[in-house]
Design a protein around this nucleic acid. Structure first.
Lengths: 212, 212
DNA sequence: GTCTATACTTGGATAGAC
DNA sequence: GTCTATCCAAGTATAGAC
C-alpha cells in the first residue's frame, strides 16, 4: 500500500493498492514460489493489510492470475517490438536467446513456471493458467513462420511442434537455473544457439534437402 | 497404513507405514502438486494418522525428499538396464524417447517438476533437491558420451551442455503436458526425435564436418 | 469505497497414550 | 517402538469500522 494514500482520490488509492499487491505477488512468486505465495506474505511485502488481497482480488489465486496477466502484458510488449526487426532465421534465434536470458534475469520465466507447476493444487487454476500460456506458443509458432517462411525444414518439422519444444526448453531451463542458482548452463545453451544461428539461414535458403 | 498391523512385527509395521506414506506422498505430488502436499492430505491418502508423517520422517519436506529418492531409485534401475542395450546414437535417441514418455505416463516426471518448482518455498530444500537431480544430468552426459563416442559433433557442442538442454526439455515438456492434460504434443516431439534418429548415426560416422 | 480487526479453517508439530 | 489426541501457528475470508 502506497503511503501517499489520504492525499489521493479514492479510485487512485485503490489503483495504487492493487498495483502494489500485484508487484508484491510477482516478487513473492519469484522468491518463495507458488507454495509460499500466501495472502499474508504478499500483503506483508506490499506493506498493507492481508485482508486487502480479498477485497481487491477476491482470493489469493485471483491475485496470482492478475500478476500473471501483468507479466504477460510486459512480455507481449517487449517481444512484439523486438520481433518487428526480425527478417532472417538467424535473427529470430538471436532474438529468442536474448529474450530468454532477459526473462531469466527478470524472474518473469520463474513466475510462469511457478504458476504452471502450482496450478495442480487448485481446481480450475490449470485451465486459467493454460489460457494465459497458450498465446505464447502460438506467438512462437507465428514467429517461426515469419522467419522461416515456407522453407523445406518447416515441411520436415511442424512449426507448432518446434514452437512447443522451444517453449518447453525455455521453461525447463528456468527450472534448472532457479534450482542451481546459476544461469550459466542456460546461457551456454543460448550462446550455442547464437553460434548455430548462421546455419539456420542456410537451411532456409537451400531448397529441397535430403531431410525426411 | 497397512491394516495387517497387529499381526506383524513392530519393525515390519514401521516399514509398512513408511512405504504407505512414501507412495501416498508420490501420489499427492502427482495429483495435487507441491503446494497440495500437506501432512494431512498425504496421511489421508495413506490411510493413517497425520502425526505419523512427523514420527517417521520428521517433517513434511523430509517425507517428500524420501519420495523423491524412491522415484530416483526406480528411474536409475530402469534407465541403466535399458542403457545396456544401447550402442548407436540412434538407439540412444529411441531409448530417451521411450523413457520420457514412460515417465510422463507414470507421473515420475511430474514428481521431479513439482519438487524443483516447490523447492523455492522452503529454505534449504533447493540444495537437497539439486543433489538428487544432478546425477541425472551426469547420467545423460555419460549416456551421450557412450553413444556418440568422440564424434566431431561432440567437439562442436559440449556433451554436458547437450545433456543440460535435454533434461530441461524433458522437464519443460512435462510442465506443458500436465497443464494441457494432453501428452500429445510431447509425444509428437519424441516421435520427431525417433524419425530423426537415423541421421544421428550419420553425424557420428561422418568425420570432420563443416560445423563450427 | 477502502481498509482493519476479528472469526474461522487448515496445517505443522508434539506430549503423552498404548 | 508405534501411534493418536491435542496444541499452536498460519492461512483464508469477512463483518464491520472509518
Amino acid at each position: 500500500m502506497v503511503r501517499t494514500g489520504s492525499a489521493r482520490r479514492p479510485d487512485e488509492r485503490s489503483a495504487d493498492t492493487r498495483r502494489a499487491l500485484v508487484e508484491a505477488a510477482l516478487d513473492v512468486l519469484r522468491s518463495e514460489g507458488f507454495a509460499g505465495a500466501t495472502a499474508r506474505t504478499i500483503a506483508g511485502r506490499a506493506g498493507c493489510n492481508q485482508g486487502l488481497v480479498f477485497y481487491h482480488f477476491g482470493s489469493v489465486v485471483d491475485l496470482l492470475l492478475a500478476a500473471l496477466d501483468e507479466v504477460s502484458a510486459r512480455r507481449r510488449e517487449r517481444y512484439e517490438s523486438a520481433l518487428a526487426s526480425v527478417h532472417r532465421a538467424s535473427e529470430l534465434v538471436e532474438l529468442a536467446a536474448r529474450i530468454f536470458s532477459e526473462d531469466l534475469d527478470s524472474g518473469d520465466a520463474a513466475v510462469l513456471v511457478e504458476m504452471i507447476a502450482g496450478a495442480s493444487s487448485t481446481p480450475g487454476l490449470g485451465a486459467a493458467v493454460k489460457a494465459r500460456i497458450d498465446p505464447w506458443s502460438e506467438f512462437a509458432a507465428s514467429a517461426l513462420h515469419s522467419a522461416f517462411g515456407d522453407a523445406p525444414v518447416l515441411r520436415a518439422v511442424e512449426p507448432a511442434e518446434v514452437a512447443h519444444a522451444v517453449v518447453a526448453l525455455y521453461l525447463g531451463l528456468e527450472l534448472l537455473s532457479h534450482l542451481d542458482g546459476d544461469r550459466g548452463p542456460a546461457l551456454a545453451v543460448f550462446d550455442r544457439a547464437l553460434r548455430l544461428a548462421p546455419f539456420m539461414d542456410l537451411l532456409v535458403t537451400k531448397q529441397h534437402e535430403e531431410l525426411p
